[in-house]
Lab assay of single mutants.
Amino acid sequence: EFTQISGYVNAFGSQRGSVLTVKVENDEGWTLVEEDFDRADYGSDPEFVAEVSSYLKRNGGIKDLTKVL
């Protein structure tokens, strides 16, 4: 089950073990991109978060400006 990723309007994530599946949706709710990120592939949590965040930004993730990150 996908849940909204904090700080984004149209990005959602689903966690299974160490694998986080993220997706970005358009205004109609269609999935634009979907990608798996395995936490085990990264040396640290900040590196993992930075990679996921960068992916979302590159692929149309819209920041939720009503929330302070």
Rank of each mutant, 00 (worst) to 15 (best):
Tyr55Met: 06
Asn26Trp: 05
Lys63Tyr: 13
Phe48His: 00
Phe37Asn: 00
Arg16Gly: 02
Tyr42Arg: 01
Pro46Ser: 15
Gly61Cys: 15
Asp27Ala: 12
Asp38Trp: 03
Asp27Pro: 11
Lys57Trp: 08
Glu35Pro: 01
Asn26Lys: 04
Asp64Tyr: 09
Gly7Asn: 05
Leu56Gln: 00
Lys63Glu: 13
Gly29Gln: 04
Gly61Asp: 01
Leu56Ser: 00
Asp27Asn: 11
Gln4Arg: 14
Asn59Val: 10
Ser6Trp: 13
Glu25Asn: 11
Phe37Ala: 00
Ala50Arg: 10
Asp41Lys: 11
Gly43Ser: 11
Tyr55Thr: 01
Ala40Lys: 12
Trp30Ile: 14
Glu47Thr: 03
Asn10Ala: 03
Asn26Gly: 07
Glu51His: 12
Ala50Lys: 11
Lys63Leu: 15
Ile5Met: 08
Arg39Val: 02
Ser18Gln: 06
Gly13Lys: 10
Leu32Cys: 09
Asp41Gly: 06
Gly43Lys: 11
Asn59Phe: 11
Gly60Glu: 02
Asn10Arg: 08
Thr31Tyr: 05
Phe48Thr: 00
Arg16Trp: 07
Leu65Ile: 12
Gln15Ala: 08
Glu51Phe: 11
Asp45Ser: 06
Leu56Val: 07
Gly7Trp: 06
Phe12Gln: 03
Ala50Ser: 09
Glu34Ala: 10
Gln4Gly: 06
Leu20Ile: 06
Leu20Met: 06
Asp64Ser: 09
Phe37Arg: 01
Val49Gly: 05
Val24Thr: 02
Val22Phe: 02
Gly13Ala: 13
Lys57Thr: 12
Lys67Cys: 15
Lys67Met: 13
Thr3Asn: 08
Phe12Asp: 00
Val52Pro: 01
Phe48Leu: 03
Ser18Cys: 12
Val19Arg: 05
Asp64Trp: 09
Asn59Ile: 07
Ser14Ile: 14
Glu1Phe: 12
Thr21Lys: 09
Val68Leu: 11
Ser14Glu: 04
Ile5Val: 06
Glu34Lys: 11
Ile62Glu: 04
Ala11Ile: 03
Leu20Cys: 14
Asp36His: 12
Glu35Asp: 07
Asp45Ile: 08
Glu1Asn: 11
Ser6Phe: 10
Phe2Gln: 05
Glu25Arg: 13
Tyr8Gln: 05
Gly29Tyr: 02
Arg58Ile: 08
Glu51Val: 15
Asp41Leu: 10
Ala40Thr: 08
Asn26Ile: 07
Arg58Trp: 06
Val68Trp: 12
Val24Leu: 07
Ser53Gly: 09
Arg58Glu: 08
Ser54Leu: 10
Asn10Met: 03
Ser18Ile: 04
Asp36Gly: 06
Phe37Met: 01
Leu69Phe: 09
Leu69Asp: 14
Leu65Tyr: 11
Asn59Trp: 14
Ser6Asp: 11
Gln4Ala: 11
Val49Asp: 11
Asn26Ala: 06
Ser18Lys: 04
Leu65Asn: 11
Glu28Thr: 09
Ala40Val: 07
Ala11Asp: 02
Thr21Cys: 07
Tyr55Lys: 03
Ala40Arg: 12
Arg58His: 08
Val9Cys: 12
Ala11Met: 03
Thr31Ile: 12
Asp27Thr: 11
Leu20Glu: 00
Gly17Met: 04
Gly60Lys: 03
Val52Asp: 02
Phe48Asn: 00
Val52Phe: 03
Ser6Asn: 13
Tyr42Val: 01
Tyr42Phe: 11
Asp45Lys: 04
Thr21Gly: 00
Glu35Arg: 15
Thr31Ala: 08
Glu34Thr: 13
Phe37Gly: 01
Thr21Met: 05
Ala50Trp: 09
Thr66Met: 10
Pro46Glu: 15
Gly7Arg: 05
Phe12Met: 04
Asp45Leu: 12
Gly7Tyr: 06
Val49Met: 14
Glu51Pro: 00
Glu28Cys: 15
Ser44Leu: 04
Ala11Phe: 03
Phe12Asn: 02
Asp36Ala: 12
Val9Trp: 07
Glu25Ser: 12
Lys23Asp: 00
Glu1Arg: 13
Val49Arg: 13
Lys57Met: 12
Phe2Ser: 04
Val19Asn: 00
Lys63Asp: 07
Val68Asp: 14
Lys63Phe: 14
Glu51Asn: 08
Leu69Ser: 14
Glu25Phe: 14
Thr21Arg: 13
Phe37Leu: 03
Ala11Pro: 00
Ser18Arg: 06
Val9Leu: 12
